[in-house]
Every structure is written in structure tokens, then in C-alpha cells.
Design a binder for these strands. Sequence first.
DNA 1: AAAAAAC
Length: 445
Amino acid sequence: MAENAAPPAKTEEKRSWADEESDEEKEAAAPPSQAADEAQPSELKKIESLSISDGKDSGERLLDDPDDSEIKAVTSGDTVYTSAVTFEDLKLSDELIKGLYVEMGFSKPSKIQAITLPMILTPPYKDLVAQAHNGSGKTTCFVLGMLSRVDPKRKIPQAICICPTRELAQQNHAVLLKMGKYTGITSMCAIPSDSANYIPINKRPPVTEQVVIGTPGTIKKWTSAKKLSTRDMKILVFDEADHMLAEDGFRDDSERIMKEIQRSSGGCQVLLFSATFNEAVKAFVSRVIKDGNQIFVKKEELTLEKVKQYKVQCPDELSKVEVIKDKIFEFGQKVGQTIIFVRTRNSARMLHQSLTEEGYECTSVQGALKQEDRDQIIKEFKDGLTKVLITTDLLARGFDQRQVLSSTSCALIGTDQSWRKSSVISSIIFLRFLTGGVRKILSLL
DNA sequence: AAAAAAC
């Protein structure tokens, strides 16, 4: 459990350096008496609802969720699913159970696991679209799904997971190795290899590993070169599925891969997992996934309500850097590590440079770096060797930094969106110009 | 609108 970052000070002291809200925000947000950081959490703290429908049902049934005690069974189509109270309910192999208890340290399924795992593991293995908050145990759902649907005796690829970034693919692969430690199930990452150990595709032996986790381009390349057989695929997972299926994301690649695998395998189960699904993606999903189980959480407030938010208004770009130096570093030392999100690769580079020049220790990572360097920088941060990491959307999604540090981290937001997607951040500091943008953020609250 | 993957 990550304890909430104790705010460094109460409101009054905070205002010694954080400006008060502007007029624009006042009209956009709440009654003028309410400071912005009061306006956000408690009001949004509603009981989260789960909506369960069979995909054809237009009228969604909403199950109020009183700490999951009442939800025992949910039906979808003709199949009756019994929510899993224990992992034993799922009839997993002993080896897998051991991995869950010993390696992962789990005791019982989380709510999303209790509901989705039976849907994933019960014939006729329907497709599944599932939304679950960050930190709710989403990864376990599909990793466990893949591990239990693979036949350990057959040395051929039977499960694929596709992720939007190499980093996320590696992270998910690490989870799979850990959870599947005693199963003997083999797996590999399908991401572009770094220059040092590059193997031309035609020299690459066909994949014999049973689970493959990778990024779209490489998966596509390997399958079209017949190095990755999809004939015996039983389960296909898209992590961060909303991005994988968004028009400005990986939709084309994803759709092609999905079609190809479903064709060659004769209908393989597809799982779509994400913390967020906007309406456009939902509409697309319902076209692609015709007859699947669906789980949506009503609103995506969970990340928000745990988060303490501060705003600092800066008249110009230069003063942002001043605030980072004077305040963020100091604040970051109290709470642990800091991630600074910025919008562009270039600002990541520039900010890193100007901070370093002035003797502030930090690192930065963005997509223009070589893969080796990316891996190295992230490893150092996860190992706690570096305290301040500047990054772009590269780490905005699915970056799980709890596996390293139970202490809190602090994120400084330079973009409108990335902080909402990021996993466990207990504290947010906005740095924005006086003009523009603020209203947009407030409307999201 | 930029970032991500990968050509």
C-alpha cells in the first residue's frame, strides 16, 4: 500500500509558493471559495459501479459495488460465470498457484480478477473487453489468462500480448516470468532488438516459446516472415487496448494482427484491457468484438481521488524551470522519487540539460534514445539509483513503479493527459502558463 | 498535436 504523500504543508504554507487559482479557473471550476485542490477529491469519491453486459445488451445493468461482497455471479450470453473468491476456484495448476502465492505474494483475487478470470478461463472462451483502474490488478488478469490457457507440453506459440511501448512489453514479460516461474512455460519479448545483438529476420529461428509479448511492429514483422506461427494461438491480449485501437494510435496494426491471428488460428480468444476507453474506441471495439463479455467501470476517478494536486502558475517557460529547481527537487526529496512529464522529446532533453548544467541531478528518457539507453535509465530509476526522471508519453501508460518503491512518487505535469494514465502517483504538481490549458484540466476533474 | 513503433 502506497501511503498517500503527506502534502508538504497545509494550504496556507503551500501558497507560499503555489499561486492561488486564477479568475479563469474560478469560473470554470467550483464556487470561488473552494480552492482547486479541495474541489477535486472528496466530491468525486463515489462508489464505483461495474457495468456488466453481454455486448448485445444495449441497456446496461449496473451493479453497485459494495466492496465486492455481493457480487458472486455475473452472466453473459448463455454462459454463467461464478466470480472467483479464491484462486483455487479457478482450477489453476499447482505450479501457477504457487507462483501466485510465493512469487507474487497474492492471497486472493482482486475484484477485477475475480470477475474477469472466470470469463477468460471458462469455455467457450469468449472475447473480453475489460476496463480496470490502474493498480487494480489488470496485468495479473491477462498474464494469468495466458499462462493458464497455454498447454505446457506443446512447444509452440500459443499466446500473444501486444503493448504500445517496448518498456511496457518488457515490464509485462517480467511479470509473466515471475508468475509463471514454476510452470515451465517459455516466453519471449518481441521488440526491436538493440543494435548490438541485431539478428536479420531471415536468420532468426522460428519462435518456439509458448508466450510472446511484444510491440505491434515487431509482431507483425515476425508473423509475416513466418517466424512467429499464429496457427495454434489460443489467446491474444492487447494491453492498453484503448490506445492500441485508437485511430491515432495503433489501430491499423492492431486490427490487422487481430484479423490475421483469428483467421489462421480459427478463432482465438481476444482480450482487451485498459484503464480508459473513450466513446470512439468503445464504438470501434463493439464493431471488432462482436460477441464478447464486457466490463466497464463507470468513471475513471480512482486515480484522481488518491492524488493530491497542486498548481503553480508560471508566467513563462523560464520560471517553470526555476520552480522545478527550487521546489520540485526539494519536495521530491521528501516524498521519494519524482517523475516529470513533459509533452515533447525536445523539452525532455532541454529540461534535463538545463537542470544538469546547474548541478541538479536528474535523468531523462524519451523515444529518440537508443533502446539500450532507455533500458538503462529506467532500470536505474527503478533501482532507486536516480531520484528524478524526466519523460514523455513514453512512460505515461502502464508504468508501474510500485514494484520498486513503496514510497510515494511525485509527478510534475507538463501535459494534459499523461498524468491521468500513469500508474501510481500520489501527488501532482501542475506547472502551466497563465494562459490556456487550465480550464481544460479543471474540466477533467 | 506530439509521441509511440518500425519501415
